[in-house]
């Protein structure tokens, strides 16, 4: 069963690219910072508010968040992938909710290359594709700036060749 799902969401014969492993580091860092903040808040509550178990509960929740989130972040980032095919770009993602988006080059209206402050510090960039449909949700986070720029240029060039208007 699982393998059939694998094949459906990762069509064989295409060259699949994955995201930069650095994205795992960044997301784990953010997760850890958040979890630590929750634990600290829990400890503070435990020391100031009666009964003590309310604060303890918050601190435990923070620890659990880290314990469950740590491996989860890795799986989630590894589940992302994209492939440039002859006529379209394919982006797959998700573990619980799996998705596979197929965007024909001719339909691309806009390719956004973005990097927030944390992403920039780690040398990461994300690429977002836009078509005339607002529901097209094809984003590729966590690429190296060079890969992202090269991808954008290739997409723009192919989009121009195959532009089909609306």
């Amino acid at each position: 069963m699982a393998s059939k799902v694998e094949v459906a969401f990762r069509p064989e014969g295409d060259t699949w690219q994955s995201l930069s492993p650095k994205l795992i580091t960044v997301r784990r860092l953010i997760l850890a910072l958040f979890a630590v903040a929750v634990v600290v808040a829990g400890v503070v509550v435990a020391l100031t508010v009666e009964p003590v178990w309310i604060g303890a509960l918050i601190a435990v929740a923070g620890v659990l968040m880290l314990a469950i989130g740590w491996p989860w972040v890795g799986r989630r980032v590894k589940s992302w992938g994209y492939a440039e095919r002859a006529d379209d770009l394919v982006v797959g993602s998700g573990i619980w909710f799996r998705r596979l988006v197929i965007v024909p080059y001719g339909r691309l209206q806009l390719v956004d290359v973005k990097a927030g402050p944390i992403d920039r510090a780690f040398g990461l960039t994300s690429v977002q594709l836009h078509t005339a449909a607002a529901t097209t949700d094809a984003a590729i986070p966590g690429l190296s700036p060079e890969t992202a720029a090269a991808l954008r240029d290739r997409l723009a060039a192919r989009g121009e060749q195959r532009s089909a208007g609306l």
Partner: peptide
Amino acid sequence: QSVRLSQGPWERALGLASVNLDIPP
């Protein structure tokens, strides 16, 4: 504009999946 295959946990348990066609808003 684009096509999308999606599958939630419930659908996966039953061996199902859905296909969205993305058109202008």
